[in-house]
Nucleic acid binder design. Structure first.
Lengths: 230, 230
DNA sequence: CGTTGTGTTGACTGCACTCAACAATTGTGG
DNA sequence: CCACAATTGTTGAGTGCAGTCAACACAACG
């Protein structure tokens, strides 16, 4: 399991992103840090803690025996994970950059819900939000072409970025091409090819490997929604 | 939108399936019936009711502009739907057989949760359960071969069947091959081919088109988990 | 008994995968 | 700081799994 180094008792930052703010009021969180490459939780492990990201990004994934991997989601600052409603983790979690998190003892969190019904309601909303995301991904993985998947992925990143500037169309991809492929049900080669294809078509521009600028969001949206054939 | 004919005020049946029992205590449900082919709710519609199935089966699905369809899940008796945590339906729902449901006014349900925290907790567990299922489907759709998908599907049906007899290995498929295909991200032809392949391999036996008997669950499980190559 | 809908099987195609070489970037030790 | 190695990403050539198109089989139904 993971090696977590304790930094300090949590102090609550303030944000107003979609389902953010969650767990911020909870007093007993403990801040920890994990360096990239280590593991935070493993699929199937008993759930002792629930986590909230302070800085950095992580990937949640499920794996098959022979090494195949499906990345369920990427999470960034203010996002929470480890809450499954059951007593075992449904997925593994690894940092894709160095990460700092606040962790909350599950038992204490469950106790806190009894006193604060509003907290329970927030957790419910969070589960629903993730359910919606997962079901949207099912459509993507089951019925969309490779181009549609990549376009959807880029637009999703733009939408979710809890950034002040809604018009900003530049993205920092913290994750590798392999991660993107494992999230979209593709191979690195296919992802790479589609990036260059979108670039040649003038829909995106690649500054460096991890910086993408969406130069034609309208057309990208059409592709993502299956209204355009590339 | 749907045409629903009111039958009678709900009386609560008693069951102890995984997340069943839910909403049974709620007093104000109204029983309605929908015939196969009609629509119960449409993706994007405002949520006025939450539903619980009394008899029959339904499919939940998302659609793309050009007609492509991803079936999120099939639901049967005692299962609930329409609860998204937001104010619009995330998917469309259609019966695959004639169906009777109890429907609950959303507003009244939300009010009831305030008085009964336990009800809220149950809804949370339900959302988590569906989240787990959706994430499992992401792995299936993103990373599994056609054979693995079909094997997983059949085993999932066996597992979920709230039947007394755990050893029974016969299945009644209420849904069509097209439905199965749209659930597994395949085509009807591929589904059909794999059914006959599994039959020839002696893993299943097809009585008629809608009756499948799993004759080698062990091997099917190996296939589903990617430990076998056909 | 024909008609219509649903499922099966075959022949062929194509999108994304595999394999492989190369390019660019990052990291490491001298 | 450079040289080298290791990692990550890109591009090309060829393959294969699942899709497409098409014909046929079988039920269900009026």
């Amino acid at each position: 399991m993971a090696t977590l180094s304790v930094i300090r008792q949590a102090e609550s930052p303030v944000l107003d992103a979609p389902h953010a703010g969650l767990l911020e009021q909870v007093q007993f969180g403990l801040a920890v840090s994990v360096e990239a490459g280590r593991t935070i939780v493993v699929e199937g492990d008993p759930i002792d803690y629930v986590y909230r990201i302070l800085s950095g990004s992580v990937r949640l994934y499920k794996a098959v025996a022979d090494g195949r991997r499906q990345i369920i989601d990427f999470l960034g600052p203010q996002d929470c994970f480890g809450l499954t409603g059951f007593d075992r983790h449904a997925y593994s979690v690894e940092p894709i950059t160095d990460v700092t998190l606040t962790r909350y003892k599950r038992k204490r969190l469950e106790a806190a819900i009894k006193d604060q019904p509003e907290l329970g309601h927030q957790l419910f909303r969070l589960a629903c939000y993730e359910l919606n995301r997962a079901q949207q991904s099912m459509l993507l993985l089951g019925r969309k072409s490779a181009d549609e998947r990549v376009a959807s992925f880029l637009l999703d990143l733009i939408d979710r970025r809890n950034d002040d500037d809604r018009k900003d169309v530049s993205l920092q991809l913290a994750m590798s091409r392999q991660d993107i492929a494992d999230h979209l049900g593709l191979t690195i080669e296919t992802v790479s090819r589609i990036f260059t294809r979108l670039k040649r078509a003038g829909l995106i521009s690649l500054q460096d490997r991890h910086t993408v600028i969406l130069t034609d969001i309208t057309k990208l949206s059409r592709i993502a929604d299956g209204e355009l054939y590339s």
